[in-house]
Deep mutational scan, measured.
Amino acid sequence: TIDDAFRAIERAIQAENEGRYREALKHFLDGGEMIVTAAEKEASQKVRNLLLHKGKEVLEWAEHLAEWILE
């Protein structure tokens, strides 16, 4: 659900702030994927587009974090 997705993102932010970057990455990926999944089930085109945009933002952040971890 969207609530689960945002809880995962909150955990990711907390982990990132505490320097637990790999854990943060996992939570960002989980949250982003949950948002995209919820968007695919959404009946309203406007809400679907907003959710897809937010999911994409979260997944892009996860990608940047992963690249930073690997440096």
Rank of each mutant, 00 (worst) to 15 (best):
I2K: 03
A24V: 02
E63H: 13
Q45S: 11
H53P: 02
G19F: 03
I69Q: 02
N49M: 06
L52P: 05
E10H: 11
Q45M: 09
E10Q: 12
I9V: 06
E18R: 09
E60P: 00
R7F: 04
Y21L: 06
D30T: 12
G55R: 07
A38K: 02
E57S: 07
I13E: 02
K54L: 15
H27T: 02
Q14M: 06
S44V: 04
L59S: 02
E40W: 15
L52D: 04
I69C: 11
F28K: 00
E63D: 07
K26W: 04
A43H: 13
L51A: 01
W61K: 03
L70H: 10
L52R: 05
D4M: 09
A24Y: 05
I13T: 04
R11H: 06
H64C: 11
N17H: 10
A5V: 07
E67H: 12
V58F: 09
A15C: 12
W68N: 06
F6K: 05
A43V: 13
H64F: 06
Y21H: 05
I35C: 08
A62N: 00
Q14W: 04
A12H: 01
L65W: 03
A62R: 01
G31P: 01
I13C: 13
R20V: 02
E23K: 01
L51M: 04
E63G: 08
N49Y: 05
E71S: 11
Y21M: 05
N49V: 06
A8C: 12
K46E: 14
D4L: 13
H53D: 14
E42A: 13
L29N: 03
K56T: 05
E33G: 07
D4S: 06
L52W: 04
M34I: 10
N49K: 04
S44E: 11
E40N: 12
L25V: 11
A62I: 08
E57L: 13
G31Y: 14
E33F: 13
L50R: 13
G31K: 03
I13G: 01
E67W: 09
I2A: 05
E57F: 07
A39E: 02
I13R: 07
E63F: 10
E18Q: 07
E42S: 11
D3Y: 12
K26R: 10
A66Q: 07
L51V: 01
D4T: 04
G31R: 03
R7I: 08
F28Q: 00
A8V: 12
M34K: 11
V36Y: 08
E60T: 07
A39P: 02
L52G: 05
H27Q: 07
K26A: 10
R48P: 01
E71R: 09
S44K: 05
G32Q: 07
K26I: 11
L65C: 05
L65V: 03
